[in-house]
């Protein structure tokens, strides 16, 4: 059996310095809290696309950290012309005005085209299929009413510190907006 070694002084110089540094550290963090308190907010912000700035470059589909982008096509139906020949739905010079895949602009067939009444058709986005490539948005904005546009779908978005798409967005269209109103929807004036 070994005898336990002798303990030395009750409070060494090192312990004293450590205690001092701890107090300094806590004070520093307290100060930081004081400075940050007015800036910190529980109402955090989320990323969103300003449709007026979006240039439909197609990067939303490829640059998001998620494999299937959090950016989706949104549709304000009140803006829609319900065209039979939708330039967001059909490729230029389609073989026929039907839902055949060869005629569709959307690479994932995420737009559902339904007959409403002659000559009107409803176009609805299937969010689970949409990859945010903006092909339909480009068609609708260039030749149509612009009722299709891109938005960050907030149930998919991880709200990264630095939006990977926003960093390379040629239109500088991404910005942080308050979480209470997390969308920048196109609305009709009437």
């Amino acid at each position: 059996m070994n005898p336990p070694p002798q303990k030395t002084s009750p409070l060494s110089r090192r312990q004293f310095f450590r205690a001092g540094a701890r107090v300094a550290g806590m004070t520093g963090m307290g100060l930081l809290c004081g400075i940050l308190a007015p800036r910190a907010s529980a109402r955090t912000t989320v990323w969103q696309i300003d449709p007026a700035k979006c240039l439909r470059c197609g990067r939303c589909a490829t640059e998001c950290v998620l494999t299937q982008s959090a950016v989706k096509c949104f549709h304000t139906h009140a803006f829609c012309g319900y065209c039979q020949l939708c330039t967001g739905y059909f490729v230029p010079e389609p073989n026929g005005l039907n839902t055949a895949a060869e005629n569709q602009l959307c690479p994932t067939a995420a737009i559902r085209r339904t007959y409403i009444e002659d000559p009107y058709y409803e176009y609805a986005i299937d969010e689970t299929l949409c990859i945010g490539c903006a092909k339909c948005v480009e068609g609708c904005n260039r030749f149509g009413n612009g009722s299709l546009y891109l938005q960050v779908s907030q149930d998919h978005c991880l709200n990264c510190n630095e939006c990977a798409i926003g960093r390379v967005c040629p239109g500088d269209a991404f910005r942080r907006i308050p979480i209470d109103h997390p969308y920048l929807l196109k609305t009709t004036s009437h």
Partner: peptide
């Protein structure tokens, strides 16, 4: 007219 779906954030 269908309303635009706006999924809520977390």
């Amino acid at each position: 007219l269908p309303l635009t779906q706006t999924p809520a954030p977390r």
